[in-house]
């Protein structure tokens, strides 16, 4: 039963006395139709919206905001990526082809952190008997859920590829291009350090 002070009484049509749902559902000659109660709500068979213009404006604004904000976020993510100035391996070393002839010194080698638009990637390798026996990425983009999801899958693949290739020419992981490139750069840096110490 509606209360006298209920502020929501007049949000929709005039209050209807408490009736069983079956009676409400069935057409009743005794009960006036909504059109009879409030003719202004209907215009022929089409329902009339009192705030049609405002609703359209709100919807338009929401769509434009969504697209505009997506474009802004995309732009911002690219800007922040390029603005990062974390020192990484020099270009000359990062692009250097792996030296097959030079042996690597045993030990654990941490590559320089390499930055991409999503964050930093750093690779650590363990060299034993002149071979890479273990690799890991102590640092990789994980600030947001998406990066975390992608890199949880990509890093193990890159590590496996490192152990197989024994150099920095590891296969890029599809869908994790930025991480793959940074991984290769940092891995090359780690390999270079082990070469330098041998």
């Amino acid at each position: 039963m509606p209360t006298p002070n209920d502020p929501y009484d007049d949000i929709v049509t005039p209050p209807v006395p408490d009736e069983p749902l079956s009676e409400l559902a069935a057409p009743s000659a005794a009960r006036p139709s909504e059109l009879e109660l409030n003719p202004s709500r209907h215009n022929g068979s089409k329902r009339r919206h009192a705030a049609k213009g405002s609703r359209s404006a709100a919807l338009g604004l929401a769509v434009v905001s969504t697209l505009g904000m997506a474009a802004y976020l995309h732009q911002a993510s690219q800007s922040s990526g390029s603005a990062a100035t974390i020192p990484s391996a020099p270009a000359t070393t990062s692009t250097k082809k792996p030296s097959e002839t030079k042996s690597m010194a045993d030990g654990v080698w941490n590559g320089d952190a390499s930055t991409n638009r999503w964050g930093l990637v750093q690779v650590a390798i363990t060299v034993s008997g002149g071979k890479i026996t273990a690799a890991s990425a102590p640092l990789y983009p994980s600030d947001d859920n998406r990066s975390l999801s992608i890199n949880r899958i990509a890093i193990p693949k890159l590590v496996q590829s490192t152990l197989t290739a024994q150099n920095a020419n590891v296969n890029s992981v599809s869908g994790a291009t930025s991480t793959s490139e940074s991984y290769q750069t940092s891995l090359q840096s780690a390999i270079d350090q082990s070469h330098a110490s041998s």
Binding site: R41, A50, A51, S54, A58
Partner: peptide
């Protein structure tokens, strides 16, 4: 008019749901 507030209220609620589904 009160009808304007109600109609806009419903519209905004419906759009919020649509954008949430999106």
């Amino acid at each position: 008019r009160p009808e304007w507030w109600v109609d806009l209220h419903r519209g905004l609620g419906g759009y919020a749901l649509i954008f949430t589904v999106f």
